[in-house]
Amino acid sequence: MSTGDASMTSTRVIDEAPARRPAGLRRLGSWRYWPLLPGALLFIAVFLVPVGEVAVWSVRGEDGWTLAHFAPVLADGAFRTILMSTLRLSLVVGVACVLIGYPVSYFLVMRPPRQQRLLLLFITIPLWVSVLIRTYSWIVLLGREGLINSVVAALGLSDTPLHLLYTRGAVYAAMIQVLLPIAILTMFSSMSTINRSLLSAARILGASPARAFIRVFLPLSVSGAVSAGVLTFVLALGFFITPALVGGPKDAMIANVIAQQISETLDWGLGSALGMTLVAAGLLIVAAFSVVLRRFTLLSSEGGTK
């Protein structure tokens, strides 16, 4: 065999090698969603499987399958009151984070890149600190001998310390402070994709700055604001440490009750039922919120992105 024939043979073998791969590997390589496979497997392992096990505990009793664990949760009693209070508190926190964070995000988007990086650094610094430490800082600030009461006493504005700690207001303030950076970053990410030349075009056509913002920028940024509100609402549903440290007895959230049922009374069935009820209520509210907003805000950012 000549050298040329040997070279052609080896080239043909190399060309035919990929065709000899197993059919399963060829199908996986042509599947467009294969990069999502590791994340999907991790999601199943660390979320779906544990949640599924909790769901099983909530409907299993000593005598087999039962819905008895859900009876105290859905009855008109303390558990339902705490659940409704948790949903209401989380909704207020989510809305407040959007209302406070939206102007900050808009201000960031309009800054030059160098200023943006510096300001974003200041916004993300609180995320580097533990939630527990940030919550304790509110105790130092709002306590009877805290900073605010010390200033009030020094100025002679009150003879008795103000009752600021262990109130619903303290819970709102602490939770908003914890979740506000997340809302700002979410809305900033969405606003950064809006094509700002549209604002210039609106100004050229005679719109005032306020009208250009209301008619152009605001509709295009609604989806980011909704995403921030939904994200902070869902995160607020699971708050545990902050209400326990700065709130009063009436400010307990459902997460505190679940922890009590699991660790103190050892009633795993009731604790699991409370957890699944919270998950279901959160999903229903988020779904309803999304449907309503999609109905009134088909002001999506399509066509307005960079």
Rank of each mutant, 00 (worst) to 15 (best):
V73H: 04
T232L: 06
A212L: 09
G156W: 15
I176H: 06
Y166R: 07
L218D: 08
D15N: 09
V109N: 15
M8G: 09
A45T: 08
I204Y: 12
L83P: 00
Y102K: 10
G4D: 14
A287M: 12
C97V: 04
T135F: 02
G271V: 08
A281Q: 12
G275I: 09
S105Q: 11
R203C: 03
T232Y: 15
D251Q: 13
S2M: 03
W57S: 05
P161C: 07
P50W: 12
L127P: 00
V93F: 11
A228T: 06
W31C: 07
G143D: 15
I184F: 10
E264F: 15
Q177T: 06
V59G: 01
L119M: 14
I254H: 04
V216I: 11
A153F: 09
W128Q: 04
F296R: 09
A202S: 08
E145K: 09
R32S: 13
L179C: 03
A6I: 06
Q261P: 01
L199E: 14
D15K: 11
N256L: 14
I262K: 04
I254A: 03
D159K: 10
L37H: 07
W128E: 06
P38N: 11
L147K: 06
T135W: 07
G146A: 08
W57H: 13
D63I: 07
G248E: 10
A259E: 14
V46M: 10
L164S: 10
R294H: 13
L89N: 04
R80D: 13
P219V: 05
R203Q: 14
A287H: 08
S2N: 13
F240G: 01
I184K: 03
A78G: 01
G146W: 02
T305F: 00
D267V: 04
T86Y: 02
I254Q: 05
A259C: 02
L36S: 02
R111K: 15
R211G: 00
L48E: 07
L185R: 05
R21G: 10
S192C: 02
V216E: 00
S200P: 00
T167N: 11
V92Y: 14
A207N: 05
